[in-house]
């Protein structure tokens, strides 16, 4: 079966036998974008979080057939070294990662959060950022989420 979608604004058409293959494996093994991680495969940890049409989605539990015609964004499409996304900027400033494995998922979840709630409270963070970090970087992550929101607010103000 042929499925077409864009990933980080690049159009892709893939030919796949099992249309129920999790999007995660198409992204990692067919498109070779290894930033999106496999943690549990059960929609429990959030390591595989990416955006589908701007919504945070756990790609280990998302059949690729549902991606037809959609816009997918992965951690590779968040920002660049020269022009980091506010979430990436904040993550660098707060030196968040420990081993790093869970971080792309957290960052994608955070990017979706601050798009929808530009000034998230601690409660908003508790409700919406429910990924799992085995290194327990939660404390630094919370600081970075507030900081990312602040950078995004300032950037969007300057752009107005």
């Amino acid at each position: 079966m042929k499925i077409s979608f864009s990933v980080n604004e690049v159009p892709h058409s893939i030919e796949i036998k099992d249309e129920n293959t999790p999007l995660l494996w198409v992204i990692r093994d067919m498109l070779h974008l290894k930033g999106t991680k496999y943690g549990c495969g059960k929609a429990a940890c959030g390591a595989c979080t990416l955006h589908v049409d701007g919504e945070a989605v756990r790609s280990c539990s998302y059949a690729v057939k549902f991606a037809e015609g959609k816009k997918i964004r992965t951690i590779e499409g968040l920002g660049t070294k020269e022009n980091p996304h506010p979430v990436q900027q904040a993550w660098i400033e707060e030196i968040v990662p420990q081993c790093g494995y869970c971080q792309p998922g957290f960052m994608m979840a955070t990017a979706a959060l601050i798009d929808k709630i530009p000034e998230p409270t601690d409660d908003d963070i508790d409700r919406n950022i429910i990924n799992v970090c085995r290194c327990a970087t939660y404390y630094r992550m919370r600081k970075a989420i507030h900081r990312a929101a602040q950078i995004q607010r300032t950037t969007s103000k300057t752009m107005e």
Partner: peptide
């Protein structure tokens, strides 16, 4: 708002 039922349930 950002983590909805459909983040996991399709």
């Amino acid at each position: 708002t950002a983590t909805q039922c459909t983040t996991c349930h399709q």
